[in-house]
């Protein structure tokens, strides 16, 4: 099953133009993946974004999670203590990299942030291809302080998969866009591409 789909889709809990945070209602082991493209389809346009960070922990920071003793695996602990999971949260940070309005896909910041509590879903392969086809989406990611080299590499790898047979072509095209964006930082360029080819 694709992570983060179905009834358990996370919702926007902190909304910004450049980035937003969405949270699952409880702890999940398989949230959106690093670098994955996600979509918020509520509101006048669909906002596309890129997963740059994921964290899980107690809902109330004042009540830290106590580590139990014994030799049970995590799954066994959760199975034996069903009340724990709802007290935990998984939160995902997303950097906006474009939006789709009607027929048009734009590699620009959306005019307004996603609505709070809007559901966040995986972008479809079609949406992913659409949004990443010309490499322009990278400009927003590179400009974001939340996006480091590891994220960029993961984004490119994920998007390449969506391009299927044209993955190689896509990687070169996006790489060229990155080379332009990072023209003064050859070391960064090669570290990102190393992550892509690894």
């Amino acid at each position: 099953m694709t992570p983060g789909t179905g009834g358990d889709a996370p919702r926007v809990v902190e909304a910004g133009l450049r980035s937003f945070v969405c949270a699952y209602e409880r702890y999940v082991e398989d949230p959106f993946r690093l670098g994955q493209l996600v979509a918020v389809r509520e509101g006048p346009w669909s906002i596309l974004g890129c997963v740059v960070d994921t964290e899980s922990g107690p809902e109330d920071p004042g009540r830290p999670l106590q580590a139990p003793g014994g030799s049970l695996t995590a799954a066994e602990v959760f199975a034996e203590n069903p009340h724990i999971r709802p007290l935990l949260r998984t939160r995902v940070t997303v950097v906006a990299c474009g939006y789709i309005e009607g027929e048009g896909a734009f590699a620009l910041l959306p005019p307004a942030p996603p609505p709070l509590l809007a559901r966040v879903e995986s972008a479809t392969p079609a949406e992913t291809m659409h949004a990443t086809s010309d490499g322009a989406f990278l400009a927003l990611l590179v400009a974001s302080a939340l996006c480091d080299d590891a994220v960029l590499a993961a984004v490119l790898r994920g998007a390449a998969t969506a391009h299927g047979a044209a993955a190689g072509e896509f990687t070169v095209r996006a790489g060229k866009e990155l080379a332009r964006l990072l023209k003064a930082e050859p070391a960064r360029l090669s570290s990102i591409l190393r992550g892509v080819t690894a």
């Binding site: 790489g175 080379a179 332009r180 023209k183 090669s190 190393r194 080819t197």
Partner: peptide
Amino acid sequence: SAEAGATSWPPGADDGPLAALLREVLLDTG
């Protein structure tokens, strides 16, 4: 070269995937 970087730290001349990709990516950009 558009910037000194691309030629000061050129991609390796080997056939590895990274060097090959870097060479291709830098052509007509860097």
